[in-house]
Design a protein around this nucleic acid. Sequence first.
DNA 1: CGAGGCCTTGACCGCGGTCAATGCCCGTGG
DNA 2: CCACGGGCATTGACCGCGGTCAAGGCCTCG
Lengths: 190, 190
Amino acid sequence: MQQHIQMISKYLDSALAEKGWEKIAETLQEVHFKEGDTPIREGYYHNYAYIILQGGARSYYWKDDKEVITWFAFENDVVASLQNYNNKPALETVSFLENSHCLKIDLHKLHSFSQTDIATCHLINTIFEEHITFLEERLRLLQHNAGIERYLYILEKEPALLNRIPLTYLASYLGITRETLSRLRARITF
Amino acid sequence: MQQHIQMISKYLDSALAEKGWEKIAETLQEVHFKEGDTPIREGYYHNYAYIILQGGARSYYWKDDKEVITWFAFENDVVASLQNYNNKPALETVSFLENSHCLKIDLHKLHSFSQTDIATCHLINTIFEEHITFLEERLRLLQHNAGIERYLYILEKEPALLNRIPLTYLASYLGITRETLSRLRARITF
DNA sequence: CGAGGCCTTGACCGCGGTCAATGCCCGTGG
DNA sequence: CCACGGGCATTGACCGCGGTCAAGGCCTCG
């Protein structure tokens, strides 16, 4: 199980320092997903979160008849629905982009550990905080920036993303159409 | 001090059930702000959060030479900078919209209580969770909705907002210009 | 009564959405 | 080995939403 803890490299430093992962790490199980697998579905309850050891996933919801992508997750990221954690149906669908290798976290156990184990409670705090930082940065990007600035932001901050996802997904993530993204890219190249 | 706890009505039910507020409540102090007071400033450290008992505030940052408003807070809302909580300079400025009456929370104490007191740790979890829900809803609003839909959302979900803030602020909050908001409103009225 | 803050309205135009056609890459099957 | 089809990206034509700049109206306060 120590091996699992070592794999959770992203939260390792802060969490192990307070022995935060030890309790939940004992319950972790390794699982594999294939490209296209969709463990978490909008409107449904799902009792697990996942840490991606190898692979990638995306989260999206349906607006009118189109998918709107809200995030991507890759190695060392946590994949979960906050609603599921609170015993409610998910608001988004999570689908794997690649064949993936994950650690499975039981949400009921995590929730109940956090009631009595302060280290687990801190662990959740850390994950929440990181998610808030991500969301606030994303809101800054979307609230008052033109399409070109949104794309340049990805080029600068997440260039690796371009090699792992279709541009159609990136466009949705940036809140623009695939055609507009295509034109923005053409503008930059020449 | 029990009086303070009773005033924190928004988090009272869940928090008091686990005695979450008791430790930090002993350190709360009542403070008053005047319209225009700006306790939290972009780039600066500020050691307090506030619960608004009466009044209102807004948070914003500077983009180019314009203010971009990220949230409003009124009665029973918590006003704080997550960066300040983590001992870093604030990313946003918080300014009071009205003469306000607040409870002041010492962030250092809150942080240190949360290290040993699991109830305080849960309290922070609750506040973080609520903030995540707020941010995710806001991202849905901004990522793939036209101006008119954004305004209609406020009309439906937060109609009281219209009576307390200038339309210029609302426009910024919705990610559009004041002129566009004005035209949208004209379209709806007739 | 004048000044300033806030909202509205007008003219103009560029960004970005929609619809449709075309190009490119690659896997599959004849 | 080549031909076809499907998935994805690009490009074009068109146009409406929303940004910018500027002017004008309304209300409040000094």
